[in-house]
């Protein structure tokens, strides 16, 4: 479903070249739920932006759902759902319902499919009470649920989440985690999740990838990850050791 082959992206910053991601290779099979970890500035967001075609890789190749994201961006957009925790993709001044309606048109979703999915999402994400509220008046937790629904209305095969639980309270977090788990197990949607919240990882991800300095530092199951540091009992400690290289 997702394939990176020695993908790299560098940026020119004044006269220096910064390699945000270099020689990154991995595959994610359909139906997997993968946690993508890494310290700030490790290249997580750069990877995600290459997956949705926002950034063109400078080296290597990227394929998502069989397509080259940077060349077939608008085609891929119909098959992928993207959520940025730090930034809404909804229309600020419109009621949530109207944003959804607009998405239905932009993604050319059949009216009947749309109605069924919206009803489902409204129930599972508990959107009912603020469907008619303009997005700018929503709380962060409500907005994030709205953004999640918006990314799923076209029933994508892959869902890419960039820090979806950032800034959320424990109850909202738990709600979003439950929802993502059900989405993956019941619908078989492939999920790639970046987060700094290790609770998200422990609760949701069978597989963990850890990126540091733009390169893959670990790729395996959660148990494998714990086994890299025998004697450590908490995931926080294990990840800290990997980040700091001790």
């Amino acid at each position: 479903m997702i394939e990176l082959d020695r993908a790299g992206r560098s940026f020119k910053v004044r006269r220096n070249v910064v390699h945000a991601v270099r020689d990154l290779s991995f595959r994610v099979a359909p139906g997997e739920f993968v946690g993508y970890l890494g310290p700030n500035g490790a290249g997580k967001s750069t990877t995600i932006k290459m997956l949705c075609g926002i950034l063109t890789p400078t080296t290597g190749s990227v394929r998502v759902a069989g397509l080259d994201p940077s060349r077939r961006r608008t085609t891929l957009a119909r098959r992928i759902g993207v959520v940025f925790g730090q930034r809404t993709t909804l229309w600020w001044d419109l009621p949530l319902k109207d944003s959804f309606e607009l998405i239905r048109h932009l993604y050319r979703v059949e009216r009947a499919d749309f109605a069924t999915r919206l009803a489902e999402l409204t129930e599972t994400l508990d959107l009912g009470e603020f469907l008619r509220t303009p997005v700018r008046q929503l709380s962060l937790g409500q907005r994030m649920r709205g953004d999640l629904a918006a990314a799923l209305l076209h029933a994508p095969d892959v869902l890419v989440l960039d820090e979806p639980t950032i800034g959320l309270d424990v109850v909202s977090k738990a709600g979003i985690r439950d929802f993502l788990q059900r989405l993956n197990t019941e619908r078989g949607t492939t999920v790639l999740l970046t987060t700094h919240d290790l609770g998200d990882i422990e609760r949701l991800c069978r597989r963990v990838m850890l990126i540091d300095h733009g390169q893959l530092a670990f790729d395996g199951t959660l148990d494998d990850l714990m086994a890299t540091a025998p004697g450590q009992s908490s995931i926080e400690e294990v990840v800290t050791r990997l980040y700091t290289g001790t």
């Binding site: 075609g53 926002i54 961006r73 608008t74 930034r87 993709t89 993604y107």
Partner: peptide, 13 residues
């Protein structure tokens, strides 16, 4: 602002 990201994830030019 980096908000161009949200334009680029939609299936419209």
């Amino acid at each position: 602002a980096g908000t161009l990201d949200t334009f680029l994830i939609r299936p419209v030019s």
